[in-house]
Amino acid sequence: MSEELTDERAELEAAIAENPEEVAEFVRRLDAVNELLDVLALGEGALTDEMVRDVAGTTATLAESADGIATEETVGLAETVGENGAELEDALESLLTLQRTGALDELVELGGVASLLTSALDDEMVTSLAGTGTSLGELADTATEEDTHDGLETMLEGVAAAEAETPEQVGPLGLLGAARDPDVQYGLGYLLSIARAIGRERTETGAAETTQ
């Protein structure tokens, strides 16, 4: 035994002599630690290499998951969830209702169509469609004015009635004969009225273009 180790043992004995109660408490705890070590030894004996690898793998996965979960984004997400808990609960309820009624699947399919539309369009098509839509809108605006609407209906009904009948070929004499028919007289009056209005419209438009 070396001189250095003899000195350390003497110091330990002196320390025990000075603190007998603390040493007694330490020994009692040491017994508990030993019991625990016995249990671990039992476990170690029962484990196979594969089981150790599995346990180690699971532990590592858990650790990695915890590490992965604790990213800046997930912490931010958790904060957002916490701050908007009530709204998210409501939203989840709505989602569950959609799921129960089958509407969620419909919405997912409609989402596919929306994705299709955005994929299919390009700038030119958007511009062209918007232009066509605008022209149609302007036309619809004019067509839905009450008088225009009534007039167009009268005209369309007249066209439909004419199509339903078999038109005859009419020469000058036939035209003169037809002119005595009150319906034809009313219709001619109507057409002359349209002709007058179109002429007036074009004159006004022409004058406006000339002054520009």
């Binding site: 997912v108 399919e109 409609l110 596919g112 169509v113 994705s115 299709l116 098509m125 062209s128 469609l129 066509t132």
Partner: peptide, 27 residues
């Protein structure tokens, strides 16, 4: 490709019908 659906099938049928607007330069 997204998951197949009846809606996309309808979109194809609808486009085939409205193709004539494309030919006219409207769509």
């Amino acid at each position: 490709p997204p998951p197949p659906s009846e809606k996309i099938h309808w979109s194809k049928l609808a486009y085939n019908e409205s193709y004539w607007l494309t030919a006219r330069g409207l769509l």
